[in-house]
Amino acid sequence: MTPELRTDRLVLSPYVASDESEFVALFQDRLSGRWFWEGPDPEPEAETRALFGRIFSSVYAENRWPIWAVRHEGRFIGHAEIKPSPLPRLDGHEIVYGLTADSWGQGFGTEVAEALTSYGYRELQLDEVHATVSAENSASLNVLKKLGYVHVRNIPEDDGTTTQLLTHRRASDTVRP
């Protein structure tokens, strides 16, 4: 079950069916959604809607990993999750988050990443938490480095871009418990 998480200003709560349009808008947005895409363009809207449906039919129904809607003052501003990493040769969990473009620059990314990292240590008993971020996403890279994530390696992508793997280890935990 996905528990509710709270930070100073945010509530991370399980998605509800009425979040579909905001989820789709986030994932389809050319500014904020591009960090979720695998390629230069968003998936067709129908595929994004199907992805939202799988949160309920697969991830929540099978209790696979926690996925949250991120809200500030009751308003949807993003998506967050901590899940087993799909990377080969990486046995661990990674955090995933994205915020609406109109919520950028307010420190919300730091709050979300900090909450996810702390959840990984406290609730999942992880010794380390990973993140994979496009090398072009300097805002997220800065957030993660500020929280103590360390660059481990670059991962070349088929489209010529580079993804960075970053890791935060419990021993150097700078995230509030």
Rank of each mutant, 00 (worst) to 15 (best):
L31D: 13
E4W: 11
R49H: 01
E47M: 09
R170C: 01
Y121C: 07
V143K: 06
F23Q: 10
L165I: 05
F27N: 13
G39R: 03
P156V: 04
A25K: 12
N154G: 07
I82Q: 02
F52Q: 03
G39S: 06
E73V: 09
G120R: 03
E45Q: 12
P40R: 11
D173H: 13
F56K: 02
W37Q: 08
H168L: 07
V133G: 01
P156R: 04
A69R: 08
N63H: 13
L51Q: 15
E43W: 13
A61C: 02
N137D: 00
Y121D: 01
T100N: 12
T162V: 09
M1V: 09
S18R: 09
P44L: 00
Q28S: 12
Y149M: 02
E123W: 12
F108S: 00
R71T: 09
W35P: 01
R176S: 14
R34Q: 14
Y15R: 03
G107E: 01
N63Y: 06
V143N: 07
A135L: 14
W68N: 03
D173E: 09
E62G: 13
S21A: 11
E22W: 06
E4F: 08
I82L: 06
E38M: 14
A80H: 03
V59R: 14
A101Y: 05
H151K: 14
